[in-house]
Structures are given as C-alpha cells and as structure tokens.
Computed example of a mutant assay.
Amino acid sequence: MERAAKKQAIEDLNVVFKDTGVAIVAHYSGLSVAQMQKLRMQMKQAGAAVKVSKNRLAKIALEGTDVVAIGSLLKGPTVIATSKDPVAAPKVAVEFAKTNEQFVILGGSMGKTVLDTNGVKALASLPSLDELRGKLVGLIVAPATKLAQLTNAPAGKLARVIQAHASKGEAA
C-alpha cells in the first residue's frame, strides 16, 4: 500500500469512527468469502457497516474518537462492525456468531464505554431503536383509546338496557 493510500484509508476510517455510536471487534479467520458477503449484507440491512482494515492503520484512525478503547482488541485478523444505532451492529454480530463458529466477538465500545464479549451480547439483547419508538407510540396512543372506550361505554350500556326492556315487553 502506498503512503497516500494509507493516509486516505486512515482518514476514511477516522470519519467512520467519529460518526459511529458503537463499534464491535471480532476475529474472522476461517470465514469464506460467501460468509463475509452474507455478514456484510446482514449488517447493511440493519443499518450497520463492516470494515476490514490493517490493525496498525485502524489504531491510528481511532485516535481522537470516542471508540479509541477498541485499539487494544485489534490483534490478528479482525473485522470492525460499526453503526449509529447502538443495538444494530451488536445484534447482527451476535446472531452471525451463533451460526459461524469462526466469527469470534472480542469486544467493542459504545461511545467511551468499553464492552467485553458479555457486554456486546447484553447490548444485542436490547430492543432496537425502531422497536422502542413503536412501544413509545403505543404507550402514548393507549390512554386515548381507553378514553374513547370509556366515553362510549355509558351510551352502549344505556342502549343494552333499553333493548332488554323492549325484549321483556315483547315477551310478555
């Protein structure tokens, strides 16, 4: 790699690390090209990205970012998964690791918080940002629905009482 290409790679990685909410580091030794493509596709669908870079260049690019703590994990053939949503990359990485034994999660960083393997798995078990938004909207809408049901209930009860008296009158 030429010096200019290395400099450009460092700048590109630095931009990625500054924009990310979470970064996950994993070993990928032994994965086939098809498996790596599958991982990239799953990450892309979840709104995350996967980067394979020289560890030395990645360590330089980490300087001055919130996720600088992952520098110590960059040893051997590593892949870095990043996403703005703090749950997207860990969720895909953990699911992918379940089906591919060669993909070993080493740890990661969520902002300045360092995550070990168990921390990444705990983060993956949380609901995504979209799921949380859906639950929040459901909670906001629920009181309005209950209020509408309560205001309609007396009229419905009155109609049933009148219907019952009318039925008694016809039967007699």
Rank of each mutant, 00 (worst) to 15 (best):
E2M: 11
E2G: 15
A4I: 14
A5T: 10
K7W: 11
A9W: 08
A9S: 13
A9Y: 10
E11D: 09
D12P: 02
L13Q: 04
L13N: 00
L13E: 02
V15R: 10
F17P: 10
K18Q: 06
K18V: 05
G21L: 01
I24W: 01
V25F: 03
V25G: 01
A26F: 08
H27D: 13
Y28H: 10
S29A: 15
L31E: 13
L31Y: 07
A34C: 04
Q35P: 08
Q35H: 10
Q37C: 00
Q37L: 07
Q37W: 04
K38P: 00
M41I: 08
M41V: 10
M43H: 08
M43G: 14
Q45K: 15
A46C: 04
A46V: 00
A46P: 06
A48S: 06
A48Y: 04
A49L: 13
A49T: 14
V52E: 02
V52R: 06
S53Q: 13
S53Y: 15
S53W: 12
L57M: 07
L57S: 01
A58E: 09
A58I: 06
A58W: 07
K59I: 06
A61Q: 09
L62K: 05
L73S: 00
L74G: 00
P86R: 03
P86E: 02
A88R: 09
A88P: 03
P90T: 07
P90V: 04
V92R: 09
V94L: 00
E95Y: 05
K98V: 01
T99I: 09
I105H: 06
G107K: 00
G107V: 00
M110C: 12
M110H: 03
G111H: 04
G111I: 07
D116A: 04
N118I: 01
A124R: 02
S125V: 12
S125Q: 15
P127N: 03
L129G: 09
L129Q: 14
D130C: 06
L132R: 13
R133L: 14
G134D: 06
L136P: 07
V137G: 00
G138A: 02
L139S: 13
V141K: 13
A142P: 07
P143H: 04
A148D: 12
L150T: 11
L150P: 00
L150W: 10
T151D: 05
T151L: 15
N152S: 13
A153I: 00
A155T: 12
K157E: 13
K157F: 14
L158K: 04
L158W: 03
A159T: 08
A159V: 12
A164R: 08
A164Y: 07
A164I: 08
A164G: 07
H165F: 14
S167P: 01
S167Y: 07
G169W: 11
E170Y: 02
E170M: 09
A171P: 09
A172E: 15
